[in-house]
Each structure stands twice: as C-alpha cells, then as structure tokens.
C-alpha cells in the first residue's frame, strides 16, 4: 500500500532517465590512453627487435672470435706439438 502512495513508478522511471547522463572523459585522457594502447605497443616491439639484434650480434662476435682462435691454434699448435714430440722421441744419452 505504501508503494502506491509514493511516486508513480513511470514518473520515477522517466525522472531517473533524465538524471542519468553519459559522462564525457577528458579529451587528453582519451588521447593519451590511445597512444599508450596503440602507439607505444609499436615502440616496444621495435625495441624488443633491437634488443634481439644486439644479443645475436654479441653471440656472433663471441662465436667468430672462438672460431678464429681455434683456426689459429690449428695452424700454429700442430707445429709446436710436432717439435715437442720430435724432441721427446730423441734418444736420451
């Protein structure tokens, strides 16, 4: 009974409809968020690629350095070893 005495439901509904309005966010906020979502994503992808390139360059440097040392060893060590071996094979008096 109490509810019937109060405001008419239809009237209340239409009053509510008038009061509920869509809120406009700050334009700067909308722009900044768009940049964070879309544009910074590209930047982060670029930086990650650069990072990968640097890592692979370092690994390539290490590998090629090691390979160079290995080749140099192959060239020079056998001779030295050969001398040592020939020395050790010499009959001791």
């Amino acid at each position: 009974m109490k509810k019937q005495e109060g405001i008419d439901p239809k009237q209340f509904e239409s009053e509510l409809k008038k009061k509920f309005v869509r809120v406009q966010p700050d334009e700067s906020f909308v722009k900044n968020l768009r940049q964070i979502l879309v544009e910074k994503k590209f930047i982060s992808l670029e930086t990650s690629k650069k990072y990968l390139f640097t890592i692979s360059l370092i690994f390539f440097g290490i590998f090629s350095g090691y390979f160079l040392i290995w080749i140099l060893k192959k060239i020079f060590y056998p001779k030295r070893n050969g001398n040592k071996e020939s020395n050790s094979e010499m009959p001791q008096e």
Binding site: P25, L37, V38, F42
Partner: peptide, 27 residues
C-alpha cells in the same frame, strides 16, 4: 591489428568510462 583495436577503443571508451564513473564516483 592495433589500428582496428584503436577503432574499437574510440567506439567504446566513453560508455566504459561512464559506467566506471557511476560505479566509483570519482574521475
């Protein structure tokens, strides 16, 4: 496709903001 996501963002940002604004009560 980020450009496509950007379109979806523009389409929905105001309604999502409004919903959250009404639920939290502060900007």
């Amino acid at each position: 496709d980020l450009e496509a996501f950007s379109v979806l963002y523009k389409e929905n940002v105001q309604r999502i903001y409004t919903y959250i604004y009404y639920r939290t009560g502060n900007k």
